[in-house]
Every structure is written in C-alpha cells, then in structure tokens.
Design a binder for these strands. Structure first.
Lengths: 109, 109
DNA sequence: GGCACCTGTCATATTTTTCTTACACGTGGT
DNA sequence: ACCACGTGTAAGAAAAATATGACAGGTGCC
C-alpha cells in the first residue's frame, strides 16, 4: 500500500477526514465488531454508521463480511485493513499526477 | 510532526481530502508561488483559492507571507511545509484519544 | 402470533462545504 | 484620471455531505 493512485489517495483522505469516521476506524483497532453493536458503542444511528462503513470500505480501510451466528442471526462483522500511507508533499505531488478530474465514490470493485 | 493531536490530524486529513486542495499542495512542491499566479495556473477563481489556502495553512501544510515586489506590489507567496504524517490504524487510534467532540476551524494561532 | 435481535435501503431534512460574483483597498505606468 | 496588476473579504447561490426516521427483509424464542 506504499504506492497508491491519486484517486485512491483522495478516497482515503476524504474518508478519513471526518471525526465520526476516525472514531469508527479507531474503534475497530482492538478487534472486529458487528454493525449494530458499533452503532450502540459509538452512539450513532445504524443507517448512518452503515454509510460511513461503506465509505471506509470503498477506500480499502476496513473490510466487512457477513457471518451467521450460532442462533442463526446474520451479522456483519467489520475489521480494519492494516494500511499504511505516508503523507508527504512529494507523495502528494506524485499522486496528483494520476488524479482524475472527477472522482466518483461509486461502484468501484 | 510524527506526533500530532487528534484535532490536528483531523484538520490535516480533511484539508487534504479534496481534489482541488491536493492539486494546490502539489503545485507548490516544485517551488513557491503567489496567489494570483496560482489561480491562473490551476484555473480556479482567486477568492476560492484564497479559501483553500487558508484551510491548508490552518492545518500547517502550507505557509504564506506577504512580500513587496520591486515595483511595489504586495504579493503573497505560499510554500509547502515539509510535513510527514504516517497514516496507520494505530496512529489513528492514538490520535482519536485526544479528539475533541467538535473541531472548529477557527482562530487557532 | 407476538417479541427480540440482526441485516439492508429509501426518502427526507438539515447542515457544511464549495464556488461565484461583487466589492473594498493598495501600488506603478501611460 | 484611467488601466493593469496585486491584495482581502463579504454575500449569496449551488452542490455535497451528514444525519434521522420509516420501512423492507431475515432468524429464533416465549
């Protein structure tokens, strides 16, 4: 992950440039968790958390997968991706070379 | 700059999480420049550039100072600060510990 | 059947961010 | 005086992000 495209870097930075989302990532560092529980822990509504998680996943910072618990409930667990991005003026200059004029946050992969 | 407070990190990330602002920083890497010239180079209006530069400066990523040219014109030159922020899940977890509930972008130094 | 828990998404309102237009000021040169 | 160039900032429109509530589905248990 040392090398990232401009679009990818922008996606990462704008995903991380938000208080709530920083907290979400931080909350997953000790270990994985499932959506409803996170919503309670972080005191935010589940639909909103869902939105934030989507954005973070699209940036490749977290990853979620559905799992069936013993009592048959479908639960979506999220965990942090072990990313490492070095933020320097030079890295930015390099990334900007491959930056699309318009970055849409949709449907990628 | 290896150690940053949560608020500072959030300010940096949200300042950098924008296409235009990434381009602005990148444009200053080769060397300093003054506002009106940058606006022409980057094809954005001067007031808007002014706004972006303020935001970047508040995050400590660029620095500007007024200078008087030979023909007496007051020109504001900007240059990049040689920052280096390492973005990892652990760094974020640490930063979040010192994150205010509400970060205002005003008046800080 | 009720209830509890889990998941997802839609429609909507609210708040921020982004950007433009228009104005203020200053200098020096024609 | 006027024009060209530089600075700053305030007001308002336009676009995007943020957040809520209501609804859909699923399972198992009393």
């Amino acid at each position: 992950m040392a090398e990232v495209t401009g679009d990818q870097m922008l996606r990462i930075l704008s995903a991380l440039g938000s208080g709530p989302r920083l907290r979400i990532v931080a909350s997953l560092v000790p270990g994985r968790n499932y959506v409803s529980q996170m919503a309670r822990d972080l005191q935010i509504s589940r639909p909103l958390l869902h939105l934030h998680l989507q954005r973070l996943e699209k940036a490749g910072l977290v990853q979620g997968h559905l799992e069936l618990s013993d009592d048959g409930k479908a639960m979506k667990f999220y965990e942090v991706t072990p990313f490492a991005v070095s933020l320097t003026p030079q890295a930015i200059a390099k990334a900007v070379e491959t930056l699309s004029s318009d970055v849409e946050r949709g449907e990628g992969e």
